[in-house]
């Protein structure tokens, strides 16, 4: 490795923990959100340097894009609840966060244990007992697709994505159960009525749709996939809710619920059907892998995007269409 590369990596390795620390120790939540967005950008760069462009892609979409919006949204909601009294409004738009030592200790102990455990795990890493390259080689020989990344991603990624969509779905249900009030954009009139904002969404929305489907396709032969595609389309949903183009309830309740469950259900159905045909869960019959996986990823993308938007708006969809 060149000296320049080493210096760049050193800089990344130095700035990440410092940024993480400043994010956690920030004086108020708004600053923490801004620092977190910056952290996301730097983390994407770090993954890029580590030779993991697929994670860099996911981090660019999730960390810097949609999580930033999610956190700013939360900060806005909290300061609305706390800052009801106009005279009492602090200079910053958010409440100061008090941190009693008991809270610090309660967080510090498990974090320290985790850090020590991780450090020990890394140091005592055994030589790999599973011969990954030859396993991958076998999978390529068996599978229909020839590109090594394609074969690995499509054959082994299935379980991963299956669990991810399950977790997202559960998260949405948990948020709904909290009974929060609906999130909608509350921009000052000058911003909400600005033709610039409308023109931006007009330009952005179709570009996001095309890029989202592109990422889904890209996932079959290079970095990309359902999760990255879903994050881009979810960000579009968030922008549309914030600019009032989409009601926070998103639409007719039964349809939305069905849409949320679609990805998980299709995945499960195909997996079980494949088990009946070939004897193994998610072991697709030869010759059908590419089409089946692409179909699954397509529905997964749709559900992930919808779930992220639903998580953002925080209210369960109503049974009847709002305002109908």
């Amino acid at each position: 490795m060149s000296f320049a590369g080493l210096a760049l990596d050193g800089l990344l390795a130095l700035s990440l923990p410092i940024l993480a620390w400043r994010t956690l120790a920030a004086r108020d939540l708004y600053r923490a959100a801004i620092l977190f967005i910056t952290f996301g950008v730097i983390l994407a760069l770090a993954w890029a340097r580590l030779g993991a462009p697929d994670i860099a892609l996911a981090e660019a979409a999730i960390g810097a894009g949609i999580t930033g919006a999610l956190l700013l949204n939360t900060v806005g909601g909290l300061s609305r609840r706390n800052g009801g009294d106009d005279d009492e409004r602090p200079d910053e738009p958010t409440d100061r966060v008090g941190r009693p030592w008991t809270t610090r200790l309660a967080v510090a102990i498990p974090v320290t244990i985790l850090a020590v455990g991780l450090g020990w795990a890394v140091l005592s890493l055994p030589a790999p007992t599973v011969d990954m390259p030859s396993l991958v080689g076998e999978a390529i020989a068996e599978g229909e697709v020839s590109h090594p990344i394609t074969a690995v991603l499509l054959d082994y990624r299935s379980y991963d994505t299956f669990l991810e969509i399950g977790v997202l779905l559960l998260a949405a249900l948990c948020v709904w159960s909290l009974g929060l009030s609906a999130v909608r954009g509350e921009a000052p009139e000058a911003v909400a009525k600005s033709p610039v904002l409308a023109g931006f969404v007009r330009l952005l929305a179709p570009a996001m749709v095309v890029s989202g489907v592109y990422l889904l396709w890209a996932g079959t032969s290079q970095p990309g996939g359902a999760f990255q595609a879903g994050a881009v389309l979810g960000a579009l949903g968030v922008v549309m809710v914030l600019t009032g183009l989409l009601a926070p309830s998103l639409g007719r309740g039964s349809i939305i619920r069905a849409g949320l469950a679609l990805g998980f259900s299709v995945f499960l159905l195909v997996g079980v059907a494949a088990m009946l045909a070939t004897g193994g869960f998610l072991e697709y019959p030869a010759g059908f892998e590419y089409g089946l996986i692409l179909a699954i990823e397509f529905f997964l993308t749709f559900s992930i995007a919808l779930t992220l938007t639903a998580l953002f708006t925080t209210v369960p969809p109503r049974e009847k269409k709002e305002g109908a």
Binding site: A187, P188, V191, L197
Partner: peptide
């Protein structure tokens, strides 16, 4: 957007 918000 930022400058409009800042003005307001």
């Amino acid at each position: 957007l930022i400058s409009t918000t800042a003005l307001k």
